[in-house]
Lab assay of single mutants.
Amino acid sequence: DTCAICRVQVMDACLRCQAENKQEDCVVVWGECNHSFHNCCMSLWVKQNNRCPLCQ
């Protein structure tokens, strides 16, 4: 699966965690819609949006 926000494989660290060298801290979360995201990506997304980027 791919993170619906950053488009990186969810089993890999997101771009932000890769840049900050925090790959082991990058975890996967699932929305109520069952789409998967990196927690970092979702945390930033929900500050500006309240819907899944794929379900909009």
Rank of each mutant, 00 (worst) to 15 (best):
D1C: 04
D1V: 08
D1N: 07
D1T: 04
D1M: 01
D1A: 05
T2A: 00
T2F: 07
T2G: 00
T2K: 10
T2Q: 12
C3L: 00
C3G: 03
C3H: 03
C3P: 03
C3I: 13
A4H: 06
A4E: 15
A4S: 13
A4C: 07
A4R: 10
A4D: 10
A4F: 10
A4N: 12
A4Q: 04
A4I: 01
I5A: 11
I5G: 07
I5R: 09
I5Y: 14
I5V: 14
I5L: 13
I5N: 06
C6Q: 01
C6E: 03
C6K: 01
C6G: 00
C6L: 00
C6H: 02
C6I: 00
R7H: 12
V8F: 08
V8Y: 06
V8Q: 10
V8M: 13
V8W: 07
Q9T: 10
Q9E: 12
Q9Y: 03
Q9F: 05
V10N: 15
V10K: 10
V10T: 13
V10H: 11
M11N: 12
M11D: 15
M11Q: 11
M11P: 10
D12S: 08
D12T: 08
D12R: 10
D12M: 04
A13K: 15
A13S: 12
A13C: 06
A13Q: 15
C14Y: 04
L15C: 10
L15I: 05
L15E: 05
L15A: 14
L15D: 12
L15K: 01
R16G: 11
R16N: 05
C17T: 00
C17W: 00
C17H: 08
C17Y: 00
C17D: 06
Q18A: 10
Q18T: 12
Q18K: 09
Q18P: 13
Q18N: 08
Q18G: 11
Q18V: 10
Q18R: 10
A19L: 08
A19H: 05
E20H: 04
E20D: 02
E20L: 10
N21E: 12
N21S: 11
N21H: 09
N21R: 07
N21L: 07
N21Q: 13
K22P: 11
K22N: 07
K22W: 04
K22V: 06
Q23Y: 06
Q23T: 14
Q23F: 05
Q23C: 07
Q23S: 08
Q23P: 07
Q23V: 06
Q23W: 06
Q23I: 05
Q23R: 10
E24H: 09
E24Y: 05
E24L: 04
E24W: 01
D25C: 07
D25M: 05
D25Q: 10
D25G: 13
D25V: 01
C26G: 11
C26S: 11
C26M: 09
C26L: 04
C26H: 12
V27E: 00
V27W: 08
V27S: 14
V27P: 02
V27Q: 05
V28P: 04
V28F: 11
V29N: 15
V29G: 13
V29P: 12
V29C: 11
V29H: 11
W30R: 15
W30H: 15
G31F: 05
G31Q: 11
G31I: 00
G31K: 14
G31R: 08
E32P: 07
E32T: 09
E32Q: 10
E32V: 06
C33V: 01
C33P: 03
N34S: 09
N34P: 10
N34C: 05
N34D: 14
H35G: 02
H35I: 00
H35W: 00
H35K: 01
H35L: 00
S36H: 06
S36P: 14
S36Y: 07
S36E: 06
S36A: 13
F37A: 13
F37S: 03
F37T: 05
F37K: 01
F37R: 03
F37Y: 10
F37I: 04
H38Q: 00
H38K: 00
H38C: 03
H38S: 00
H38F: 00
H38V: 01
N39H: 12
N39D: 13
N39C: 04
N39R: 12
N39K: 13
N39P: 10
C40T: 04
C40K: 09
C41K: 03
C41Y: 04
C41I: 02
C41A: 00
C41H: 04
C41Q: 00
M42I: 05
S43T: 07
S43P: 15
S43H: 10
S43E: 15
L44H: 08
L44F: 06
L44I: 11
W45A: 14
W45S: 13
W45Q: 15
W45Y: 02
W45K: 12
W45D: 15
V46G: 07
V46L: 12
V46M: 11
V46C: 08
V46F: 14
V46A: 10
V46R: 13
K47A: 09
K47G: 08
Q48D: 10
Q48P: 11
Q48Y: 13
Q48N: 07
Q48L: 12
Q48W: 03
N49T: 06
N49G: 14
N49L: 04
N50H: 09
N50C: 02
N50T: 07
N50R: 11
N50S: 12
N50A: 12
R51H: 13
R51L: 14
R51K: 05
R51N: 08
C52I: 01
C52M: 03
C52S: 04
C52N: 02
C52E: 03
C52K: 02
C52W: 07
C52L: 03
P53M: 09
P53R: 05
P53Q: 06
P53C: 04
L54T: 15
L54W: 05
L54E: 14
L54H: 13
L54R: 14
L54Q: 15
L54F: 12
L54Y: 10
C55E: 03
C55Q: 01
C55L: 02
C55A: 02
C55V: 03
Q56H: 11
Q56T: 14
Q56P: 14
Q56M: 13
Q56E: 13
